[in-house]
Design a protein around this nucleic acid. Structure first.
Length: 272
DNA sequence: ATCCCGAAGG
DNA sequence: CCTTCGGGAT
């Protein structure tokens, strides 16, 4: 079992200074967590400050056309996230009096919010003692247990480990540990869990029990030459103004229309 | 090439 | 269960 006290004290000593960690505003935490889905923290910082200034409440985001949000998401990738955050903002205005709901069930009912993000908001905004399972924490728990874990086992284990009243610090510390020490290639000599980590005690045998990170993180297809690259380029161009449909790859455009990221009117393509 | 504080659709 | 979905850093 994890040495909870050692992990907690290591976190108090060297937690990375990320700006959203100074906030408990549920909406700003939600913006950060959505941006952090598949995008590294260092690349999110500047964009998070911008969005908090432009859209300080859900009503501010839901009050602008989706196209505005998409333009202001440009460069972060996965524009569905901006579309869904815009939709979630509208749903919060409609169903929750413009507030971010404070239950896992209500959060997960919003578009773009899954198991990770719902629990991250509960732990990091509302300071509830829930286990937050991202790719980092899943990796740490699998290695500590010394065996590959299923998704639901990791969640139960994560929930059970949270020290009473310290869900915020505990989860932030574990994530940080995964991002800086218990990385895919680990630095076990610097790890506060080394004394209790079964994988380390066994001499880090292959295969790494964290391989696949309990299914929370999925392998990536190559980006160069992919549809994702073509979609990104198309959206970037459309963000600069309406364009004749004929200038773009039809199959890519169809996909973007299907995803609600592009609309076609009078032979021209526009952001929604 | 690999890695990111994942979610939704099939 | 499976695949798709951006983009930058290393």
């Amino acid at each position: 079992m994890l040495a909870v006290a050692d992990v907690l004290s290591s976190g108090e000593a060297r937690l990375r200074d990320l700006p959203w960690r100074a906030s408990r505003d549920p909406w700003k935490i939600l913006i950060a967590e959505v941006m952090l889905q598949q995008t590294q923290a260092m690349r999110v910082i500047r964009r998070w400050h911008d969005w908090c200034r432009w859209y300080p409440t859900p009503a501010d985001l839901s009050g602008v056309p989706l196209g505005d949000a998409l333009r202001r998401w440009q460069g972060l990738g996965y524009p569905r996230r901006a579309r869904d955050l815009h939709g979630a903002a509208a749903a919060m205005v409609q169903r929750h009096d413009g507030q971010v709901p404070d239950s896992v069930e209500q959060l997960q009912a919003l578009p773009g919010i899954g198991p990770y993000t719902a629990r991250a908001v509960m732990a990091f905004a509302f300071e509830r003692d829930v286990g937050v399972v991202d790719t980092n924490i899943a990796r740490i728990l699998a290695r500590t247990a010394g065996t590959k874990l299923t998704r639901s086992t990791v969640q139960s284990l994560a929930d059970a480990l949270v020290p009473d009243g310290q869900g915020w610090l505990w989860n932030q510390t574990l994530m940080d540990l995964g991002a800086t020490v218990c990385r895919p290639k680990p630095s076990c000599e610097a790890c506060p869990t080394a004394a209790t980590c079964r994988w380390h005690q066994a001499g880090n045998p292959m295969p790494d029990p964290a391989a696949g990170s309990a299914g929370v993180s999925t392998p990536q297809a190559p980006y160069e030459g992919s549809d994702r690259q073509a979609r990104g380029r198309t959206l970037a161009e459309l963000g600069r103004g309406a364009n004749a449909t004929a200038r773009f790859d039809r199959r890519i455009v169809e996909g973007l229309i299907l995803d609600g990221l592009v609309v076609e009117r009078d032979g021209e393509l526009h952001l929604p």
